[in-house]
Write a protein that binds this DNA or RNA. Structure first.
Lengths: 148, 148
DNA sequence: GTAACTGTAACTATCTTAGTGACAATTAGG
DNA sequence: CCTAATTGTCACTAAGATAGTTACAGTTAC
């Protein structure tokens, strides 16, 4: 599996932006919540910004806020933006063409892999940042939004 | 996501063993089909052997063969044996407990992640090495088994 | 006895990732 | 205009994972 946590961090950041709704959040503020370095957050917000999910402003009083409604941001969109393409890596070197198995295994596996991956992506496609936000607020058992 | 190709290689090896049905295959033979080093194959066969999927014999005339029917080996079993546990890595450091979002994000995400992973695993659970073998043989458009 | 195997340890090269410091550019506000 | 706050981005490091490789002792068939 892609051994990176960028999807997790991106969803965390977007959920936080949803919770503070409208008030711009600095990379430093988000980084404290995620418990990482602000540069890591800025890198991810950069990708989300180019895709139109967030708007970011430099300078004093700057920061990032959502550019779309939380209910319009699907987790699948975020997942793909974070560079997650193939769930199952193929052979590092192409298999032997001199073998019945080597000749066809990649064709067969790519069908299987894509079916499995689609099943997973279908679940992510049915969930939005709003769902995450609501579940967090439900767990907190209060309608207030005092994130930090 | 799993960043290693061991699952692919394991399925390749098992499919090859299914195709040559009964005739023991050496790690060198399998490695030529996969296009890798025999030690890489032996490492994987070692795991499959401990799990009872293959039987391996050392010495001259040795090699590996399936210990179960191809139809009794599910791809999910192989997937898990290859060390694939969590599809979606969480934060590298635990998020801040001082933040509403940081406090609950992992609880919420672990539910979402497990749902998505289960959907993927359900597909793998419905497929066996026999399915792979049959698809390969179908592509080869011949009932003969001359793998190399 | 010899040749053909496996199992496994040890090592290397390569890649990916997260994290970090540094600094120019931008902006708000006095 | 000056200052403080903030982003974007580059360059680097440390750590970890992976595939590949060599080597060699142990096992087996003939």
């Amino acid at each position: 599996m892609t051994k990176n946590s960028r999807f997790t961090v991106a969803v965390h950041a977007l959920a936080l932006l949803a919770i503070v709704r409208g008030k711009p959040a600095t990379s430093d503020y988000i980084a404290r919540s995620v418990n990482t370095n602000p540069v890591v957050i800025r890198r991810i917000l950069g990708v989300l910004g180019k895709a139109g999910l967030v708007e970011t402003h430099p300078g004093a009083g700057g920061g990032s806020e959502l550019a779309k409604k939380p209910s319009d941001i699907s987790l699948l969109e975020v997942y793909r933006l974070m560079g997650n393409v193939d769930l199952f890596p193929m052979h590092t070197q192409p298999p032997s063409e001199d073998c019945v198995c080597g000749r066809h295994i990649q064709t067969v596996l790519s069908g299987v892999f894509s079916e499995a991956q689609q099943a997973m992506e279908h679940v992510l496609d049915g969930l939005t940042i709003e769902d995450i936000e609501l579940q967090i607020e439900e767990l907190e058992e209060s309608g207030l939004c005092e994130p930090c």
